[in-house]
Design a protein around this nucleic acid. Structure first.
Length: 735
DNA sequence: TGTGTGCGCATTTTT
DNA sequence: TGCGCACACA
């Protein structure tokens, strides 16, 4: 059967690959781990692999599953495949972990014990849900902050653990577990699923249903996983459950780019994968097609400082290129100005704005940069804003659709008075009481309660639900949701809200588009699919000017590349963050270093690294020394200015390395409860200390250990003083 | 019911 | 320092 790329076409694609890439693409053994460095063509390898499998007749498209983390990555793979696989690849399972599990869960809802019409909660929906639950159970939100509860629940789920099985090491954990248990119960009762639930429910289903597991494990002869270093315990278990014993796993990842360990991602899964999923070969992709020699050299050297890594070295055929700049500013505002002025000069020499990026560690840093961009009239775009389906007005519109689809309590509360129709807290309380008296839910009470305005709302609800029952299509429903509800009118009336009204119209456009392009011909209604899609794929952040300088966190920059990259805020306490410096676990600082590695490897041609002598942090002026990462770069790829800059002692920590702690491989060492247990932790760079005579100062450097520990403290007026930590009358104020 | 005020908080966040 | 959220008020 011809279902794939014509052979001659495939040959031409194979010819584009280097020997290592080809080795991976044409791998014939069982499993394969591809260690793909930054800019080494990993997407090309993944897509070529699929094209090769099909063209060589190893399998049909329906036998392949390719999993990514982001919708963007899935989309990119799909687009590239469309070019490569001439005869199409319908039947191929390609999507995110969550997207694929979502489909499985809908298909096997009954077997999994969930309602077929379950609704997905995004993280903000989840928080609202938890808040309501806490209120219902009369739990003090001060004592159990909803966000902490959410983290607890998500972390448990991502480790594959239900409330019933959650460990209780201490009293608080017992309380958390009970909360988790209530949460599970409420989710079940109200047909809600959070993100992690999509995976956990499928994992549990596969755990218990051997037939189903065998079915899928046999079906997917080839399972390809992108960004394997980012998999968490639950995702890994899911993959393992799909192991039939003789299907083929193809994992692509880079442990050096693991920057989501803080969220439960475990790069150790790469090694586990090798052992447990029959991959006795690693193919290393080290030929980099992105950056100049200097940039790669710097990145290689920096990351070599990390102990806990599989190990690889990027190389390039390009020359050294421009040396890396390191630029010191006296203060943060000046740093922003330096970057923006340099950007302006680049643009004047015909650099395309899109090809310039300013990267930073924390979102808070974007403010000064943004101001400077405005001041110098440079078009810019900040990534990380509110995405389309996360916008307030769009969430309202979506809530109306949810109400059409079924009894959704949170959706009801959200829009019962949106647009305002005179239903206040008092009325809602009454509604709630009625529901309790009836021994039923809010929706039953809606029809029973004797409040005219609620009666009107109930009528509205009946009307749009009737529309659905009569078979109205998705765009009609979307239009009804914003028009009959009065939402559109409400936002159109306010001149300052024209953008919101515009977004609501865009919402309807989205529905029209979804209706026509809808590829997922499962047995679910387009309405449910549309809602789920909105949550799982909440869309681009914003449509800023098309050609603009890119401002984003380093996390957001992963996977992207730019001709010229500025990295801002390279200071101890900011990057690496003070939290990572204070951590007794070296894993934290290693993750920061990987983040730096990601930042460096975004640049194709030029790289400028910036730091400031002082910075406003939460209204306080902090004097932070330059980041250790700057000192970890080899001098021979830096500009001479850069070397001088680093050598200038302002406040200097030049080449004195921070005391490196013994690298233990303990997964999670116990957190210290009392700082005094570990005297070395008393003073860290960036800490604010109080001296009886000199006043407030900031620790900029520490040397030695135990009783010999010396700290250098910079005082606003007196400058830098050195103290013996054991003797000095210093008191730590913050850090 | 919408508006104001003040408190508390403040890495990173693919789904 | 700046904001987002919770609560108090008119």
């Amino acid at each position: 059967m011809i279902n794939s790329a014509a052979p001659y076409l495939m040959d031409s694609f194979l010819n584009l690959l280097n020997p290592h890439q080809r080795e991976a693409v044409c791998h014939n053994g069982e499993g394969l781990l591809v260690l793909a460095g930054a800019g080494t063509g990993k997407t090309r390898v993944l897509t070529s692999r699929i094209a090769w499998l099909l063209s060589e007749g190893h399998c049909q498209s329906r036998d392949i599953m390719a999993v990514t983390f982001t919708n963007k990555a899935a989309k990119e793979m799909r687009e590239r495949l469309e070019v490569m696989v001439a005869f199409g690849f319908s039947g191929l399972t390609l999507g995110t972990f969550h997207g694929i599990c979502h489909r499985l869960l809908r298909r096997h809802a009954v077997a999994a014990g969930v309602d077929k019409n379950f609704q997905i909660m995004d993280s903000s929906d989840q928080l609202t849900f938890i808040r309501r639950l806490l209120r219902e159970k009369q739990v003090d939100e001060k004592e159990f902050p909803p966000t902490e509860c959410r983290s607890y629940i998500n972390a448990a789920k991502e480790n594959g653990v239900r409330a019933a099985a959650a460990p209780v090491p201490h009293k608080r954990a017992a309380a958390m577990r009970e909360l988790y248990s209530w949460y599970e119960e409420s989710c079940r009762r109200e047909h809600k699923a959070d993100f992690a639930e999509l995976l956990l429910a499928v994992v549990e289903l596969l755990r218990k249903d051997a037939d189903l597991r065998t079915h899928y494990a046999r079906r997917f002869l080839h399972i390809l996983v992108d960004e394997f270093q980012d998999t968490n315990a639950l995702q890994y278990e899911w993959l393992k459950l799909l192991d039939s014993g003789d299907n083929h796993f193809f994992a692509v990842g880079d442990d050096d780019q693991s920057i989501y360990a803080f969220r439960g991602a475990d790069p150790g899964n790469m090694l586990r994968f090798q052992e447990e999923l029959r991959s006795n070969t690693i193919v290393r992709l080290e030929q980099n097609y992105r950056s100049t020699g200097n940039i790669l050299h710097a990145a290689n050297r920096l990351i070599a400082t990390n102990h806990n890594r599989i190990g690889k070295n990027l190389k390039t055929d390009q020359g050294g290129g421009a040396p890396i700049n390191i630029i010191r500013a006296t203060k943060d505002i000046e740093e922003a100005a330096n970057i923006v002025i340099a950007t302006k000069q680049l643009l004047e020499t015909n650099m395309v704005a899109d090809e310039v990026a300013v990267l930073y560690r924390t979102n808070a840093q974007s403010r000064l940069l943004e101001q400077a961009m405005i001041e110098y009239a440079i078009p810019y775009r900040i990534y990380g804003g509110t995405r389309f389906y996360e916008r307030l007005e769009v969430k309202h519109a979506l809530a109306y659709l949810r109400l059409i689809a079924g009894d959704d309590r949170d959706a009801l509360i959200r829009v019962i008075n949106m647009p305002p129709r005179g239903i206040g807290t008092r009325a809602i309380e009454k509604l709630q009481e009625t529901a309790t008296q009836m021994g039923s839910n809010l929706f039953a009470a809606l029809e029973a309660v004797q409040i005219p305005k609620i009666g009107q709302f109930a009528a509205l609800l009946r009307k749009i639900r009737a529309l659905y029952a009569s078979g109205a299509d998705l765009p009609t429903l979307a239009r009804a949701a914003i028009e009959q509800s009065g939402l559109l009118e409400h936002y159109s009336a306010k001149t300052e809200d024209t953008e919101r009204a515009e977004n609501l119209r865009e919402f309807v456009n989205g529905a029209v588009l979804f209706q026509t392009s809808e590829t997922d011909n499962e047995d679910n209604s387009p309405l449910l699919q549309f809602i789920a899609n909105a949550v799982l794929e909440s869309g681009e952040a914003q449509g800023a000017p098309s050609n603009a300088v890119n401002l984003m966190t380093i996390h957001a920059a992963k996977g992207l590349e730019f001709m010229h990259v500025f990295v801002a805020g390279l200071e101890e306490g900011l990057f690496p963050t003070s939290q990572s410096l204070n951590s007794i676990n070296t894993a934290a600082i290693e993750e920061e270093r990987r983040l730096m590695y990601v930042a460096l490897t975004r640049a194709r041609r030029e790289l400028s690294l910036h730091y400031a002598g002082s910075r406003q942090v939460y209204g306080e002026t902090k004097y932070l020394p330059p980041s250790r990462f700057l000192n970890e770069l080899p001098a021979d790829c830096l500009s001479t200015d850069a070397v001088d800059t680093l050598a200038t002692p302002v406040p200097s920590i030049t080449s004195v390395p921070q005391p490196s702690f013994q690298r233990t491989r303990l997964p999670r060492p116990p957190m210290p409860t009392d700082e005094d247990n570990i005297p070395d932790m008393r003073y860290r760079a960036g800490d604010t200390v109080l001296h009886p005579r000199y006043g407030k100062g900031v620790v900029i450097r520490r040397q030695g250990n135990g009783d010999d520990l010396q700290v250098q403290v910079t005082f606003k007026k007196l400058g830098i003083k050195t103290f013996k930590a054991a003797l000095a009358p210093l008191k730590k104020i913050s850090g």
